[in-house]
Design a protein around this nucleic acid. Structure first.
Lengths: 362, 362
DNA sequence: CTGAAAGCGCTAACAA
DNA sequence: TTGTTAGCGCTTTCAG
């Protein structure tokens, strides 16, 4: 009984001497036949080892898969390593649960072009979370005749979308640092394009970035700093492909090595900031006395160590995305959910000390 | 192009004046037709807005869904809150990714009996993770004519299984405490049955537990303590339905209130132990000087605070489960993977102080 | 309350 | 290299 499918709805019907409709009804519309008959059907089913209507055949017929597909930037497994992504997943799962829908995680390796997994996915719609604008998987999703909602990406055609005001959010942080007196800063950012680059990101590369969110944040930072007369060309931006604490460490190392004069490091994620924090302290520099460090996301780990960061509601993001997808809106009238963020004033950003203080103590 | 399915493989074939096979081959077996024809097919497809073969119809025909279903004890969303579960998910996702398979999270509310989600799941097999022996969802999975592997559960029929030696693992911890001199202990455990119970768990309830792992651990503890002449009936065991730090806190409070004489609290999970740690300290008792606390799992958070615990390889568990399911073994010869665990001697367990020391200091 | 008819959209032998 | 034939297993009008 555990490896083949001996019985089908048809064979059951034959065995019982009733029509297939009746058997189908026994499962799907109990009120459409007498309790006795229904019991007889179900009993015979058990006896024959009939496992109930085949879900795939049913889906084909009803045109409902009962599942939502999730397409992510990262390997599935990485997603579980990033607390922000986990928060998003939790929210999305919540929405799916409410709707009784399954959640299909699609195995999309960002470094490969293989979109078969998208074609193969039997789902009623897709949530696309922060993939690059030119990702072939995204293109494959768009070709599928099912709805999709994008999150942390530019809006597309007439798709629903959820996100935050990345520009506003990071500008608030920039202004916070500027207010504290920082003028020499360095930036650590996540992957800007599908092609791997671990190192400085030129302004040109920043402008060509295909990861919407990262690009948005960098652009906003440029604006914020140019507004006070700082030449963005001179601001060092270091990029990392992998989004890990170790990446943050090495990136911070690289930054501090090449730009020892900076008084603050702004990171586009908490994970990177956590790494930067480690590296800075390992080099014997104190935070925030010698160097200020800021993050982005507001993950638990970051808030625990008192990171100065921007908190965004990841769980709500996931939930909103799921809801949008599941309670279909009116076609042709795409909806947009924009969530709020807030500055978290932790203990990793302070006024830069003057040069004298640096050398001679306060 | 984004809400209906105008074209089908058949209509495309008709339009092109070729057979359906040819169109199918254009997608699935490029080598079976001339490049020119293939190009013509694909071009026409694009023109007609044909999105490629329907995944559900294909699944029906090929009898392959390209996805693995995951059934969990908890609401999907809770799973993302428990670092141990996240570790498991990560490992499972890794295995799925390697096989190019999707991972379908099945919305199974443990407090409801609705198993439709299991019936509806279009998957090639199931991974069942730590659900109670009498869970109707589990029963539903067993009825499906697809393979399944269970994890942290008793072996079933001829299903593959992965787990650890729970008994051995927790006995090692018990012996560690006994070696330190503890004789008066209390226990905090997770949910023992589907029916909610937040409070003391009688021996009877322990014996009737339907959560295999919890039962196994309690039984092993009973053995370990009876071996040194302690009457297990007298050992207070406090159960919590929700697996959260807050639960650990309240359970520890309850335990310390009713059994102030205990010198150690053994918890069957790190999450509970983390809660116990908070509660104990909030009550002004020092750990481990006044009270020893131990956990189980070895989650990052626990190791960071120096919890004395048992580490189990959650990621490997998930990966092993996925692999077992995906590279099908020989039918009728169920496999079993048993992973190793290790005692982590942290800083939350020490010798109990003598009564004099308790009152008068060391 | 039950049955007959008509596919859902696709793939896989097997022939040609 | 391409086409013919036969379903995969189910649901759903529409009559009876």
């Amino acid at each position: 009984m555990n490896v083949r499918r001996p019985a089908t709805l048809a064979s059951l019907a034959a065995e019982l001497g009733v029509s297939r409709t009746t058997v189908s009804n026994a499962y799907n519309r109990p009120d459409q036949l007498s309790p006795e008959l229904r019991k007889r059907v179900l009993d015979t089913a058990r006896r024959l080892g009939y496992p109930g209507p085949d879900p795939v055949a049913r889906s084909l017929r009803t045109r409902k898969a009962g599942a939502v597909g999730l397409l992510l930037t990262e390997n599935l497994s990485y997603a579980f390593r990033d607390p922000a992504a986990v928060g998003f997943l939790e929210g999305l799962a919540l929405a799916c649960e409410d709707a009784g829908s399954g959640l299909l995680l699609i195995p999309a390796n960002p470094e490969r072009e293989d979109v078969a997994s998208v074609h193969r996915a039997g789902v009623d719609g897709f949530v696309v979370y922060s993939v690059p604008d030119d990702d072939p998987h995204l293109a494959a999703v768009l070709e599928r005749p099912v709805p999709a909602v994008v999150c942390d990406q530019p809006s597309i055609e007439n798709l629903d979308r959820v996100g935050i005001d990345d520009s506003r959010a990071i500008k608030t942080m920039a202004e916070h640092l500027i207010g504290l007196g920082h003028r020499k800063i360095g930036v650590l950012c996540m992957r800007l394009a599908r092609a791997r680059n671990d190192g400085p990101a030129s302004v040109q590369r920043q402008e060509n970035a295909s990861f919407h969110v990262q690009k948005k944040r960098l652009t906003a930072l440029a604006e914020a700093f140019e507004a006070i007369g700082i030449d963005w060309e001179q601001v060092p931006v270091v990029e990392r492909f992998d989004h890990t604490i170790a990446s943050g460490e090495s990136a911070a190392g690289q930054l501090l090595e090449s730009n020892p004069e900076i008084t603050a490091i702004m990171c586009t994620s908490d994970i990177l900031a956590l790494g930067a924090l480690n590296e800075t302290r390992n080099r014997g520099r104190r935070v925030p006395e010698d160097l200020s460090i800021t993050g982005f996301d507001g993950i638990t780990e970051a808030e625990r160590v008192g990171l100065t960061t921007v908190r965004q509601p990841m769980l709500e993001k996931g939930r909103a995305a799921g809801r949008l997808l599941l309670d279909a809106g009116e076609p042709g009238r795409p909806r947009e959910v924009r969530l709020d963020t807030q500055l978290v004033t932790g203990s990793t950003a302070a006024s830069p000390r003057s040069v004298e203080e640096r050398w001679f103590g306060p």
